Amino acid sequence: MTAPRLIRIGIMGAPSTGKTLLMRRIEMELRGLDIAVARTGRLGRRAALVPLPKMQHHTIDSTRWIIATGIADEVAATTSLGNDAPVRVVLADRACWDAISYFRAAQEWNGQIVPRAGGESLYRLAAAHDPYDLLFATVLDPDLPVRPKHDYDARYRTLVDHHTHALLREENLPCTPVTGDHASQQRAIEKALQLCRTEAPV
């Protein structure tokens, strides 16, 4: 019997750049195709309940918690899908590398750049996780409005966007950039669906 194909799709990017909305849309489309799918998320909200520092106040410990919890969520999501479906999809709303971008942005925001060796364990933890079959990276458009309930620091959002794309280049992680443009979002959705359709039996 052929083992079920597991597809892992992750997303990373600055706050309020459409990450969760995009993953929700992909999830809905996959469910419409009867493809088994599970989506992880809400890591920032859960970190605040621990409580751990967030956003521009991130520390090595809070970043380690985000990475480890995100990985654990992905493993649990995989298990929840069972082994009956020939294709199973896990959507990681905040890929494990995302937390490092937020941490690096927090360091710069606070003027406390720590040499990479100081946070090397974070990179090792993220690198130890299985690579994503498809990785999206949102691109910040500072002209797009942010909902009033999200009191994000504008400079910090810009730093997260910068460190997201810098980290992807440094680690040589293949990714698909996604802007706030409707056409860009549609192309991202279609790319995810095409990957899953290719693996799904006819």
Rank of each mutant, 00 (worst) to 15 (best):
L6W: 10
I7Q: 00
R8Y: 09
I9R: 03
G10E: 00
G10F: 00
I11G: 10
M12W: 03
A14Y: 11
P15S: 11
S16D: 12
G18S: 13
L21P: 00
I26F: 00
I26S: 04
E27C: 01
M28Y: 13
L30M: 05
L30T: 09
R31F: 05
R31G: 11
A36L: 07
V37I: 08
V37A: 02
A38T: 00
P51K: 06
L52A: 04
L52F: 00
P53H: 01
K54Q: 14
Q56D: 13
H57K: 09
H57I: 03
T59E: 02
S62P: 02
R64H: 07
W65T: 03
W65N: 03
I66G: 02
G70V: 01
D73K: 07
E74D: 03
V75A: 15
A77G: 04
N83E: 14
D84G: 11
P86F: 08
V90K: 10
L91G: 08
D93L: 09
C96V: 15
A99P: 00
A106N: 02
W109H: 07
Q112M: 12
V114H: 11
P115Q: 09
A117R: 14
E120Y: 11
R124M: 08
L125Q: 12
A128L: 11
H129K: 03
D133N: 11
V139C: 09
L140T: 03
D143S: 13
D143C: 00
P145L: 06
V146F: 01
H150S: 10
H150M: 08
D151F: 02
Y152Q: 00
R155F: 13
H162K: 08
A166S: 05
A166E: 04
L168V: 05
R169C: 05
R169I: 08
P174G: 06
C175Y: 15
D181I: 08
S184A: 06
E190G: 01
E190P: 03
K191M: 06
K191Q: 14
L193H: 15
T198K: 14
T198Q: 15
A200E: 12
